[in-house]
Design a protein around this nucleic acid. Structure first.
Length: 91
RNA sequence: UUAGAGAGCUAGAUAGCUGCUUUACUUAUAUAAAAUUUUGAGUUGAGAGGAAAGUCCGGGCUUCACAGGAUCAGGAUGCUGGAUAACAUCCAGCGAGGGCGACCUUAGGGAAAGUGCCGCAGAAAUUAAACCGCCUUAGCUAAAUAGAUAAGGUAAGGGUGAAAUGGUGUGGUAAGAGCACACCGCGGUGUUGGUAACAAUACUGGUCAGGGUAAACCCCAUCCGAAGCAAGAUCAUAUAGGGGCAUACGCAUCUAAUAGCACUGGUGAUCCUGCCAGAUGCCCGGGUAGAUCGCUAAAACCUGUUGGUAACAAUAAGGUUCAGAUGAAUAGCUAUCAAAGAAGUUAUCUUCAAACAGAACCCGGCUUACAGGCUCUCUGAACAC
């Protein structure tokens, strides 16, 4: 999975925006739908960690279909913490 | 027991935690005269498939205002009868082919209207044809017969091919030949059975028609208007306002409306009959592309009854309500079971382990993909009684 993020100009409670992408490279409609559902569930669990005033885009890769849920979850947590650290340093 | 044939069902289950879309109701909030609507919260109900897929047929629905008819063009179907809203679907039969059998396959009208095409091989693949062979005659060479040459006869045999002008047998003949006869096949005319396709049978035809191909053109019969939910409707912006071009704007009536005649336009083309409209079309430039409805209660589903061999139909016989999204919900995790297994380590642990596949207006089909499990009926073979 690939995560992209960019700061936006929105302020307040609903300033964090999240998007999910699963292209045709991943497979047929069932597999793409499953990948999007999986990412949505993962991000919902980590919603408190996401930085405000940022747009996130989660792009699925083919390996997400076969990996265990908790392994992906730990990878996402590590990635998000890394982002938060760099954002904090930039400020 | 084993090998098959046909028909059908299922497409993980339970519990917990955390979510998403939506029906109904309650409540709060904002707007408003009100209805309604916006944004939250709560309760309650529902939430992918047998193929949702491919988008190949048929229909509903919507728009082209609509209806009927003739000719042409284009397309589809193609044994018979039935079912159906309709179909290229389904059911029951017939013919042909395959299988020991249960059973399976089959676009299956016309090549004795016309045109086209038929590679390679082969003498010859269609105004047919003599390569080898067989036979006769003539003279020659050798001598009871054989050889080559010439002129004829011949489709019985060989060889080629997917296919060589009906097949088998007997007679016949110089050798042969439907040349003649018998049987089979084929054509014609009857009879009987069947709604019919067709089957059986009788008589008759040897001038019995030179092969295949129609999923090649074509002929015959039957059927068919086009585009699609991005259809279309309503609301909002703006059917706005502006510039240019083309056609029409007629008759009659004191006048206006209505009606009439004429003109123009009206589903591939042309025409006719009715009917409808009276302004329409194009270009330049500017600008919008949001919301609501359509949208799911119906050729609906389940269980019966009656009729029918069946497809199916009828039913004031009961019961049920079963997704309605639009950056597109219908889910994620954990545990247990289904689960029997496989691999590794090694003697009790670890890892792996369920297909094809995701509604997008809705139905009826077809086609294609598909792991595992289950049920019923039938057939062959072997063994036992």
């Amino acid at each position: 999975m690939v995560i992209q993020l960019i700061p936006n100009d929105i302020q307040g409670k609903f300033s964090t925006r999240v998007g999910f992408t699963a292209s045709k490279k991943i497979g047929n409609a069932v597999k793409r739908n499953y990948a999007k559902r999986l990412m949505r569930a993962l991000v919902y669990r980590q919603s408190n960690e996401l930085a405000s005033s940022f747009d996130y885009v989660f792009i699925a890769r083919q390996s997400i279909l076969n990996k265990k849920f908790y392994l992906i979850e730990s990878e996402i947590m590590r990635a998000i913490k890394h982002f938060n650290k760099s954002i904090f340093e930039q400020k």
